[in-house]
Amino acid sequence: EFTQKQQDLLRHILDAFSKYRIPQEVTRKLLQQRSSAEENFLLLTETATSHVQVLVEFTKKLPGFQMLDHEDQIALLKGSAVEAMFLRSAQMFSRRIPCQQSELLEDRIRHSGIAEEYIIPMFNFYRSIGELKMTQEEYSLLTAITILSPDRSFVKNREAIDRLQEPLLEILQKYCKLNHPDDPQHFARLLGRLTELRTFNHHHSNMLMSWRIN
């Protein structure tokens, strides 16, 4: 069972995660039809920028984060922004009923000058996330765990970050046992997705370079 402390922490993170949303004026543009490659590129850039802002708001609510060394806070956010963005879009793309928004977003991504070699791993990842049928608790915990990774570059006090991440891993592990008694590997599978997520840092920087060249 969860301890009281674990229940409170999970509820707190779930509450913060429910507010982790891109403002409507940005998403509304995603639904507009006009979409040349340039417009798609600008729209994706604006969406990514807006995502970083809401990611910081979510992260500020992670217990203990604001007590960390200020430069370590920046190192964690810089190190996880791309991964959190792809995990967040995977959540949207893996909804059982593809909504108008995800269809339009997929169309924009496929027609924005991004090279095919980066689109394939992206949608493979979205599919592998979708297969896990993750709940809001799993997405919120996995996002927090991704952000609070002690091994990001330029981090000075790794132990302090590990002390914040460890309780979240324990809650996620317990949550998986409670909710997936039939699938003892579920927790390991979730962590496996984090490894796959790390490859997007490399893809993303190449993608930006290819965009600049185009």
């Binding site: 850039t45 920028t49 807006s50 970083v52 802002q53 910081v56 956010l77 810089k78």
Partner: peptide, 22 residues
């Protein structure tokens, strides 16, 4: 939108200080 040409770190620093324009 000025944020487009601000680097990732600038956006993070600004948001951390809670002064980004919503």
């Amino acid at each position: 939108h000025s944020a487009n040409n601000m680097g990732l770190e600038d956006i993070i620093r600004k948001a951390l200080m809670g002064t980004y324009d919503d």
